[in-house]
Amino acid sequence: MKYSDERREAVLRKLGPPNNRSVADVAAEEGISAPTIYAWRSQARKEGRLMPDQGTQGPDGWSSRDKFNAVLETATLSEEELAEYCRRRGLYPEQIEQWRLSCEQANDRAEATAQRQADSNKEERKRNRKLTQELKRKEAALAETAALLTLRGKADAIWGDEES
């Protein structure tokens, strides 16, 4: 079934801020199938619109990508413009600030994780080197023992068994 652009926009407004209603609720209310609404929401996201996932991406329903886009959109706004932006989208300026800090710290966490991984790899190489040395030592001891047993067997064969 073909829906008008106005109807599609009205449905998308219900999904978006400040309403942030679930697809299931809007589908039941509007009599439109949920897959159709999901497709509309997906298309709106491809066009760059912020469309939160109700209840699936964190406590406030916004995906990481949408939070990042909101941070980018508000980076140059004045306090007054930020307040207006937040009102239109059903957000609080504190949320935007928290998202901004999370974005800034993301690389720090990645660097710390990389450093921990590098340290772990270094420790693993040291352990591997130590185990390799120990294995070589044990192989040498085993080879020496085998050689002594072979010599003993030959000596016994030549001079006879003294213990008998």
Rank of each mutant, 00 (worst) to 15 (best):
D5P: 00
R7L: 12
R8F: 01
R13M: 02
K14G: 10
L15D: 00
L15R: 04
G16N: 08
P17S: 00
P17E: 07
P18Y: 01
N19F: 11
R21G: 04
R21C: 01
S22W: 07
V23P: 01
V23H: 08
V26Q: 00
V26I: 09
A28M: 07
E30S: 02
E30R: 03
G31I: 05
I37T: 05
Y38G: 07
Y38E: 12
W40P: 00
Q43G: 02
A44V: 02
R45L: 07
K46S: 13
K46E: 15
E47M: 09
E47I: 02
R49A: 11
L50E: 05
L50H: 10
L50F: 07
M51P: 15
M51I: 13
D53E: 11
Q54F: 14
Q54C: 06
G55W: 11
T56C: 06
G58M: 08
P59N: 14
P59I: 10
D60N: 10
G61N: 04
W62S: 01
W62D: 05
S63A: 05
S63D: 08
S63T: 15
S64A: 13
R65E: 15
R65L: 14
R65H: 14
D66L: 07
F68W: 13
N69M: 09
N69P: 03
L72G: 12
T74K: 10
T76W: 08
E79M: 04
E80L: 14
E81I: 12
L82M: 13
E84V: 15
Y85N: 10
R88E: 12
R88A: 08
G90M: 08
E94G: 09
E94N: 04
Q95T: 12
Q95V: 05
E97L: 09
Q98C: 06
Q98E: 14
Q98N: 08
W99V: 05
W99L: 09
R100C: 03
R100K: 11
S102V: 00
C103A: 10
E104P: 04
Q105Y: 12
A106H: 08
N107D: 14
D108N: 12
R109I: 04
A112I: 06
A112D: 12
Q115P: 04
R116Y: 06
R116T: 08
A118P: 05
N121I: 04
N121S: 10
K122Q: 14
E123W: 03
E124I: 04
E124W: 09
R125E: 10
R125V: 07
K126Y: 07
R127E: 07
T132S: 14
Q133A: 15
R137A: 12
K138Q: 07
E139T: 14
A140I: 08
A140V: 10
A140N: 11
A140K: 15
A143E: 13
T145F: 13
A146K: 14
L148E: 09
T150C: 01
L151M: 09
R152S: 11
R152K: 14
A155V: 09
D156I: 15
A157Q: 12
A157E: 13
I158D: 10
W159T: 12
W159H: 13
G160A: 03
